[in-house]
């Protein structure tokens, strides 16, 4: 198990790492991580709009790990809630946010289809899609609004890069990477 995760983690770990986290994800951990990153960004990113954009995308990325995660029963973890991986790094002239979580294979095709659709849309089409989902879709039972990925794509202006790593016949490890250009 941990060998598998370590391999995924190594794949995700690129550039100059600012914050890396692997473990349980709950509301307190999200708050603490955001506080830590915010104080780091205040020092290192003088450009306020970029800093705000980065912070916004961080919030969505972390909350995606909170709302949409499955845990394989054989995963050796003490987490009562979710398990996830999160790495913020600097790669060339961009910030890179890598997130990873387990997902049931039965849900993977829907997620893949959604990301592929988002990646196929132009800036204007993304705006329309965002407004459509905002105005027409109700909340999922976990509280996600279905807008997170669209918002990330819109704010970054970049494609969502992703990989599903096979874990077991029932579960995969889903890794998504987004770049925020400085």
């Amino acid at each position: 198990m941990s060998l598998f995760l370590n391999e995924c983690y190594t794949q995700m770990n690129q550039g100059e790492v600012i914050v890396a986290y692997k473990g349980c994800i709950n509301a307190d951990i999200i708050s603490n991580t955001l506080n830590l990153i915010e104080s780091k960004l205040d020092e290192s990113v003088p450009n306020t709009p970029i800093r705000k954009k980065l912070y916004n995308v961080l919030v969505e990325s972390l909350q995606n790990l909170f709302h949409h995660v499955d845990i394989p029963p054989d995963l050796d973890t003490e987490c009562e809630s979710n398990f996830g991986v999160f790495i913020l790094s600097k790669v060339d002239n961009s910030f890179r946010i890598a997130t990873g979580n387990f997902i049931k294979n039965s849900k993977a095709p829907i997620l893949k289809e959604k990301i592929d659709k988002i990646n196929s849309l132009s800036k204007e089409e993304l705006k329309d899609f965002y407004k459509f989902v905002l105005n027409n879709q109700t909340f999922s039972e976990k509280g996600g609004g279905g807008l997170g990925l669209i918002d990330i794509a819109r704010k970054t202006g970049n494609k969502l890069d992703y990989t599903f790593y096979d874990y077991s016949p029932e579960y995969s490890f889903f890794n998504m990477n987004v770049l925020i250009n400085e």
């Binding site: 909350q63 609004g145 669209i150």
Partner: peptide, 13 residues
């Protein structure tokens, strides 16, 4: 608002 997440965006609507 300084920041709002997508979960809030539905409630603001």
């Amino acid at each position: 608002l300084e920041y709002f997440n997508t979960s809030s965006s539905k409630c603001i609507l």
